[in-house]
């Protein structure tokens, strides 16, 4: 059933894509979908841009203003917009899309997602949803977090670029010295720049950012009220240097590596196999990061290679135990 749905999605059936996203959001068939979504290395990949900032700063509104600019550049765009889910009832009021403007344009897809509290402002299995939208053929994917705070940096792991929205009157200059999301942003937007203290906020943020001269972060003033700054923002996003390696892509590479090494893995000793299975289970469960998993996998390989080299050496030196293959 899920294979059929997947095939329909691959053939451009938008309702199938939509249903697939629902399954992913509910955590259904996740393993099957993950194995179906390993794309060919030649497949064109989408540019994923995340938008974060506190509730009410204007993330949805800003995305709504950027969508026509993305469409004008002849790119198809999908938006995954997260809003909080009630810890009490499990219910949610997903109110992002109505700020993004209404459209029936085929090149625009918007999905509202509920995110549990304590989930870094993101819905579950976001990486798989991104892969599905990419497989369907969207060129640009916007992620919108739940109204997020200073420490909510997880969205950066899913995106090629992270846009942080700030607004005037939201703190003194020490706020901008703090560690966290401010360090992780690729572009900072001072939204509601029509407000009288926007200049002051801009100057404070600029001063704080410039204290770390190692990387230059564009800071842009945008006013949706005055309809100013959106084109400049889209230009800045388009001209960002080549993508960083998203963890979801690293995950795919890792999967390729595992598959290509499968023959070798079969030769591993029982103990190593158990360790390998645990490693894979932890990684799939998300308790082990891809980078750590790769490190441990690599260590496991070298150890098993050394062990087999040891055995070969010992066998080779022991009289009478030489295998026919090893001779000569």
């Amino acid at each position: 059933m899920i294979g059929d749905l997947f095939a329909r999605m691959r053939h451009g059936d938008r309702n199938a894509l939509s249903r697939l996203l629902s399954h992913i959001a509910r955590g259904e068939f996740v393993d099957d979908i993950r194995s179906l979504l390993i794309p060919s290395p030649q497949a064109p990949s989408a540019r994923v841009i995340a938008f974060t900032g506190s509730g009410g700063v204007g993330k949805s509104t800003l995305i709504g203003r950027l969508i026509p600019l993305v469409r004008a550049a002849n790119r198809k765009i999908a938006v995954l917009a997260c809003d909080p889910q009630s810890p009490l009832s499990g219910g949610a009021l997903l109110g992002d899309r109505f700020r993004m403007g209404s459209t029936s344009d085929d090149g625009v897809f918007i999905r509202s997602l509920a995110a549990l509290s304590g989930s870094s402002g993101l819905a579950k299995h976001l990486d798989l949803m991104i892969d599905a939208l990419e497989a369907f053929g969207f060129d640009v994917i916007f992620l919108e977090t739940v109204g997020a705070g200073q420490g909510d940096v997880a969205v950066g792991h899913h995106a090629d670029a992270l846009v942080l929205l700030l607004q005037p009157e939201s703190g003194d200059d020490v706020q901008w010295e703090k560690a966290g999301v401010l360090e992780c942003a690729d572009v900072i937007v001072i939204h509601k720049a029509d407000l009288p203290t926007a200049d002051q906020t801009m100057a404070q943020v600029r001063a704080a950012i410039d204290l770390s001269p190692s990387h230059h972060i564009p800071i842009l003033r945008v006013s949706t009220k005055l309809n100013q700054g959106h084109a400049e923002l889209w230009q800045a996003l388009e001209s960002l240097p080549a993508r960083r390696l998203r963890p979801s892509i690293a995950r795919r590479l890792f999967q390729h590596l595992i598959e290509s090494q499968e023959c070798h893995l079969r030769e591993l000793e029982a103990e190593a196999n158990a360790e390998l299975n645990k490693l894979l289970a932890d990684w799939q469960a998300g308790t082990l990061s891809t980078v750590d998993a790769a490190r441990r996998l690599s260590a496991l390989f070298s150890r098993s290679l050394l062990a087999s080299a040891d055995v070969a050496l010992r066998d080779g030196l022991a009289p009478g135990s030489r295998s026919p293959k090893a001779s000569g």
Partner: peptide
């Protein structure tokens, strides 16, 4: 889970919302 699509929607936009939100 309520997806609030708001005021002044066209029939086309509403149906697109229903489809994309499953």
């Amino acid at each position: 889970h309520v997806i609030y699509a708001g005021l002044w929607q066209t029939p086309e936009a509403v149906v697109r919302t229903v489809a994309d939100e499953d």
